[in-house]
Design a protein around this nucleic acid. Sequence first.
DNA 1: CGCATTCTCTGACTAAAGTCAGAGAATGGA
DNA 2: TCCATTCTCTGACTTTAGTCAGAGAATGCG
Lengths: 294, 294
Amino acid sequence: MVSQVRRFNRTVTQRVGALDDEFLARDRPLGQARLLWEIGPDGADVRSLRARLDLDSGYLSRLLRALEAAGLVAVDGSGADGRVRTARLTAAGRAERAELDRRADTAAESILDPLSASQRARLVSAMAEVERLLMASAVKVAVRSPADPAARACVRAYFDELGRRFDHGFDPGQSLPAEDQEMIPPAGLFLVATLHSEAVGCGGLKFHGDGPAEVKRMWVAPAARGLGLGRRLLSELEAHAAAYPVTALRLETNGSLAEAISLYRTSGYREVDAFNDEPYAHHWFEKTLDHGVA
Amino acid sequence: MVSQVRRFNRTVTQRVGALDDEFLARDRPLGQARLLWEIGPDGADVRSLRARLDLDSGYLSRLLRALEAAGLVAVDGSGADGRVRTARLTAAGRAERAELDRRADTAAESILDPLSASQRARLVSAMAEVERLLMASAVKVAVRSPADPAARACVRAYFDELGRRFDHGFDPGQSLPAEDQEMIPPAGLFLVATLHSEAVGCGGLKFHGDGPAEVKRMWVAPAARGLGLGRRLLSELEAHAAAYPVTALRLETNGSLAEAISLYRTSGYREVDAFNDEPYAHHWFEKTLDHGVA
DNA sequence: CGCATTCTCTGACTAAAGTCAGAGAATGGA
DNA sequence: TCCATTCTCTGACTTTAGTCAGAGAATGCG
């Protein structure tokens, strides 16, 4: 499998990467072209450009000066924060970017062009599959404090979604609580999944001595669904739990969360009688962990 | 479709390209690392390195000097041609290359690692599909003289293959001839397919006034089979024929060439009575061209 | 043999990419 | 209000990458 992946890497970076760069670079240095592209039609903060392109601040500043001198970009300090400056495309800059756009289209067409209709369809669908799975593989899962901004953002999004999906809304105050300190080791733990340093999912665990631990706050961002991330979070929670004297995991869920219920069933959880009085729950699940051999 | 391809290009060059370069570059410039890799365990002529990496001769020489200074490479002039020099890895160079190899493995593993077994299988198969189709799309087909070295190589390989596959061998002298001048415009034409400037297929056409033209020398290199290249060559021959006062294409083939026969049938050729006395032919096909609207 | 060509190399460049230190303005929290 | 921090910018570098011209040895062909 590794050798397959390596072959792919070689072939694709050669064919696609070279083509892409060649078309992106008109007569302008690649760095400038990339920046021009990244600024986009609505402009962008210098700060966010630096983060997105991962450039040295001095270098970025110089690239902006070059684009300014070419009359393609205007940088102004308008905004709430007086330190942050915003780069915007001028009319000439927009025209230039449109040209880059056309070139990227041409590059893509030059790949499709020699193929038959059925080959094109197969290529595009295989590309979509590769892209999705590469995205899935780029997701990082790490233990973080529930107080971490990314974790907070996840829980907030999770509650919002419950509010929209439950028949009569969702009020966190009515639900059984899971306090921060209950999901910080050794009392428990909290996992956050990120894609390009943006939070796209979470899941928590509350330990109860050597009794069953509770799975809480399992959530995956809509944009990241279909990547198997829910299953991955769940299995990483189980893997972490294995380091504790825990023999089983428990969780409860609402009847309107069909994907979640199906995830639990296919992950080895079996439905059990209610083990708590969570008012929003319709189903209770439990899975026995075996700490035995792999 | 174009936008799909562009998304793929972006995602893949980011994820794969960056990863690859980062791992390939240890502390050494990327150019040197690539060269070290390309020299390979058995050494390589400077001349072929220049062709493969498409480098300026001065630049390549300088890179070799740098690798020599680092004790990784030895360049010596041993060989039949006293002008050509050969670069070989020293023990240290081999060790360094092995390290690069390990790193490329690690890079590939880091892509597979976060995925489940079924996701990995899907990724690898989708990668193989993308790679194959990109290869198909990288094939260039062009009209060339039958006397062109690439064309000669194709015809030679074609005859060799017929010799191996026909029940009683193949002797070009016994077969109906197709002379060079018969496949040079306007008498006819000859197409050569190349992949990375290596010949991988061919096909010729002999015109007979406004009577049916003959398809000759249809061949695809074993390494390039399954890319739909035969069908592409055939349809490009038909497209070229459309510029001539030709109403039909004809061809004959041997019963042992099953793929070819199936290609002709599925490309709209129907079997007809023998229209010549080619001794090696078992089947004769004809397709009526319509010069009408697309 | 003579001569054009091929091959590799060095010297002398340029342009692009990227790094590092620090200055100056603005912000935010104690 | 003070002080650490953030953000952008300039100046002063280095390293890579790549180009171009031409020299010198070897080869191949007529």
